[in-house]
Nucleic acid binder design. Sequence first.
DNA 1: AACGCGGGGCG
DNA 2: CGCCCAGCGTT
Length: 295
Amino acid sequence: MLQQTQAATVVPYYNRWLRRFPTVRSLAATTESDVLHAWQGLGYYTRARNLHRCGKMIVEKFGGRLPNDPDELKSLPGIGLYTANAIAVFAFDQSLPIVEANTARVLSRLFNIRAPIDSTSGRQKLWEASAKLVPQKGARHFQNAMMDLGALICTAHNPCCQICPVKKFCRADKPASLPRKRQRARTISITEWHCFRTSGRTILLERCRQRWRGMWMLPKIQQRNSAPIHRAQFSFTHHRITLEVFRGRSNRLTTRQRWFSCHQLNRIPIPSPHRRAIIDLFIAERGAGLHPQRS
DNA sequence: AACGCGGGGCG
DNA sequence: CGCCCAGCGTT
């Protein structure tokens, strides 16, 4: 959950997740739809699918116990170099380097690394720097301190160099100008059209294909036939998407479409912009029994 | 070596 | 608005 998502955002999801899947076996035994539903709203849903597969592999290949060897950890879906080493460091107190957003920022400043930290050469320098610093004993405390330093003092904006405990080791000329990152693609704007088609207390939804795969959204339509009854904007990597929803019918009922009753909506995964649209539109129709997800 | 992938928070 | 966030797998 913490991969590219701020810890404060994760906390409520993490607590709900552990109540819902208290053991790795309960996770392995559930459906992908249920996993996506528990993840709903957190984004980057491939992480949820990978964690599900990961749970199954832990049960089937590792007897229900998480391995402590970084190479075995890396063989699990969703566990890359950072996560494998982080588990080995924080769960098993092994002495290994870790590089993530916080430590990358700290290390780039300490060592004055000017190469973009998301480039191959920049990443290599960061991992070398981390390996150079990590102590043989007490690596867990050390890496924890490095991350807290990045989170609380060596911050992305307005780093508090005055109170930094390692100020005298820092080689950065201008700490605030680091780390550097590669230039990103220009944001492009897109408008997407979907329909709100209901019949009594049921609503027509459609399986998402690539983005949000495995989730359910309002059916796509190719043509707008009237004024939108709902409009919302959301951003997405380098896309800015305007979601327009029209009353009425999708062209035809495809195999990817299904009718759902209102109370079913609280048990299936729906991407946040579409969930908000559905709630908004049902409330506009004086509520058909739908209520926002309860924690 | 790039790219795609969500969503919320902040300056 | 654009940048940032306990990265990863794919192309």
